[in-house]
């Protein structure tokens, strides 16, 4: 059995930490790292490795600037040429942080920068950047599903209609309007139902007579509350409820797994 995990966060702890980073006005340190665009660090371009490093180590902001021409320690001129696309163009990464933070990061940065140069400069922050993104909207009620839940599957025909629209679309909208956690519509390639009429996918013309299955996972109460609406909308079909364990459910990477019995 898989233990139920508590997944109630809309932001991961890393992101939560990130969103609260802000510098305050006053003394700070500006770091500039000069690299060649084509240089790599463990197979990934150095500037993106460094940017990732800064991001995940909680630096308040960083910018990568691309040079159009330059020369470095090897005293060779690198420039953007129309004919050959040079991958030796200069790249500069800049970030501003507190002295302590910079001291903490410098060792690793020196290793990552390889043959590039790192410059550290005293600076003063007149006005720190503010987080411009509005705070996230409060997480809707339905996001907090965890542990035991129910999986509802509805089997209908693709050509079934409800008030002049395809039934599966109407059901999907109804589910959304009722704040069900999420639903997916599947089209079958072959099947039959109560009337023993075979629904079949036809290869060359678009068939509109396939079997359709809607799958939705939510708490037992939510699904029971939704059932009367299903009763009204579905004239012919099959609705199946089974118990599942929610392994993970979150905003960003929605992924529900079902524990097969």
């Amino acid at each position: 059995m898989i233990a139920a995990l508590h997944v109630v966060l809309s932001l991961t702890s890393v992101e939560r930490e990130m969103s609260e980073i802000m510098l305050s006005p006053g003394k700070a340190v500006k770091v500039s790292i000069y690299l060649s665009e084509g240089s790599t660090h463990h197979g990934v371009s150095t500037y993106s490795s460094i940017l990732d490093f800064l991001f995940f180590r909680g630096v308040s902001g960083a910018t990568v600037l691309k040079g159009v021409a330059g020369f470095g320690a090897d005293h060779r001129m690198h420039s953007a040429n129309f004919v050959e696309i040079s991958d030796h163009l200069p790249v500069k990464i800049e970030f501003i942080e507190t002295r302590e933070k910079v001291d903490e990061l410098l060792g690793k940065l020196e290793e990552m920068a390889g043959s590039g140069m790192i410059e550290v400069q005293e600076t003063t922050i007149a006005k720190p950047a503010r987080v411009s993104k509005p705070r996230k909207a409060p997480v809707p009620e339905h996001v907090r599903i965890e542990g035991k839940a129910k999986l509802m599957r509805i089997y209908i025909g693709e050509s079934d209609r409800w008030h002049d629209q395809p039934l599966f679309e109407a059901l999907l909208r109804a589910m959304r309007a009722n704040d069900l956690a999420g639903a997916t519509v599947y089209r079958g390639i072959l099947g039959y139902g109560a009337h023993r009429r075979v629904h079949k996918e036809k290869p060359l013309h678009l068939s509109h007579d396939c079997s359709i299955m809607l799958s939705v996972i939510d708490t037992e109460e939510k699904l029971q509350a939704f059932l009367p609406l299903v009763d009204q909308m579905v004239q012919e079909g099959l609705v199946v409820l089974s118990s599942v364990d929610i392994i993970k459910y979150s905003h960003r990477a929605t992924e529900t797994s079902e524990n097969k019995e």
């Binding site: 089997y155 599947y186 089209r187 079958g188 390639i189 072959l190 099947g191 039959y192 139902g193 109560a194 023993r196 075979v198 079997s211 299955m213 099959l238």
Partner: peptide, 21 residues
């Protein structure tokens, strides 16, 4: 095989079956 299974289900009088790809 999926057609054969559907045919078998019908033959045994099961009430429905669906194939998904």
């Amino acid at each position: 095989l999926y057609k054969a299974i559907i045919a078998k289900c019908m033959e045994l009088g099961l009430r429905g079956a669906t194939v998904f790809r």
